[in-house]
């Protein structure tokens, strides 16, 4: 008992003061997700601050992806999936029937576990989002968006001479950065990444991690990861999920150095998961 209190005091000391002061970008209140009968996510409450990286960790099947997919309503594409509770972005309920899901997804970009560039040219991959949302008035504006997005994704130097080649001809790491460029191109506020490095080799992973670090000053980034080192390296806050519940959430250093919950402790010390 005393131990817990001490932990908490210590945690508050370690927590960056700024985190608390920042208003939350994404807020979840009592979110439950059901796949048919299966209760996959239970009573999740969390505040995710803007301009920073939050990582979701936890054993497989604990609902990290499910929660992530609630934030851009990708779960809508699964007919058996039902979401209850409140999720807001900038205090706006994203499950409000009046809200256009197409516009929501333009504000909330997503990068998937396996790189999934469209079987189109590199240019068209990046230009796809701006085109469907009418973000460019003419060809030169579109060129600018494509160039800027590829630059932000750290891919410009490698592909600038072959923008018309197929995106699927790139290496795995380049494909994933192309997917990040594609997401950035629609100028989102939030970027969701579901284990973006799990299909990549260590060098490509390092590049993506550097990229995430560069991007965090402009976006609210939420990343699901299996690697605790990765969570420690790239994120400022970490949330630990277990069996469909969010066990605890806090500044990354605190979660890894002195977690409040025994389950978190067991997971980060490798006792299960």
């Amino acid at each position: 008992m005393d131990m817990t209190v001490a932990n908490r005091i210590e945690a508050e000391r370690l927590a960056p003061v700024t985190t608390a002061a920042k208003p939350a970008k994404v807020t979840a209140k009592d979110v439950n997700v059901y796949y048919g009968e299966k209760h996959a996510l239970k009573h999740v409450n969390v505040d995710i601050p803007d301009r920073g990286v939050m990582s979701f960790i936890g054993p497989s099947g604990c609902g990290k992806s499910t929660f992530l997919r609630c934030i851009n309503r990708m779960n809508d594409t699964i007919s058996s999936c039902k979401v209850t509770g409140l999720i807001t972005i900038d205090n706006q309920d994203i499950y409000d029937p009046a809200l256009d899901v197409v516009q929501l997804r333009a504000r909330v970009g997503m990068v998937f576990q396996k790189p999934n560039p469209f079987p189109k040219s590199i240019y068209d991959n990046v230009a796809y989002g701006p085109r469907i949302h009418g973000l460019a008035n003419n060809k030169s504006e579109l060129d600018q968006i494509v160039t800027a997005s590829l630059e932000k994704a750290g891919l410009w130097g490698e592909v600038k001479d072959r923008l018309q080649d197929s995106g699927t001809g790139l290496s795995g790491g380049q494909q994933q950065r192309l997917c990040i460029a594609r997401a950035i191109a629609v100028n989102p506020e939030v970027i969701l990444m579901d284990e973006p490095c799990s299909a990549l080799d260590p060098i490509a992973t390092a590049k993506i991690e550097t990229l995430i670090d560069d991007l965090r000053s402009n976006y609210c980034i939420i990343i699901v990861t299996h690697s605790m080192q990765q969570a420690a390296r790239v994120s400022q806050r970490t949330a630990f999920f277990h069996l469909g519940t969010l066990v605890e959430e806090g500044p990354t250093e605190q979660i890894f150095s002195m977690p409040h919950d025994q389950r978190t402790q067991d997971y980060i010390t490798g006792r299960f998961g």
């Binding site: 851009n72 594409t77 333009a106 998937f112 999934n116 469209f118 989002g129 469907i132 594609r182």
Partner: peptide, 27 residues
């Protein structure tokens, strides 16, 4: 055509018919 391609288009805010026309059918 892999579901991941459709997901990629949906996540960018494409509608279903846009996804089919621009991503699924070309593939």
């Amino acid at each position: 055509v892999p579901q991941s391609l459709r997901d990629g288009a949906f996540a960018l805010g494409a509608t279903k018919s846009e996804t089919i026309k621009q991503v699924v059918l070309p593939a």
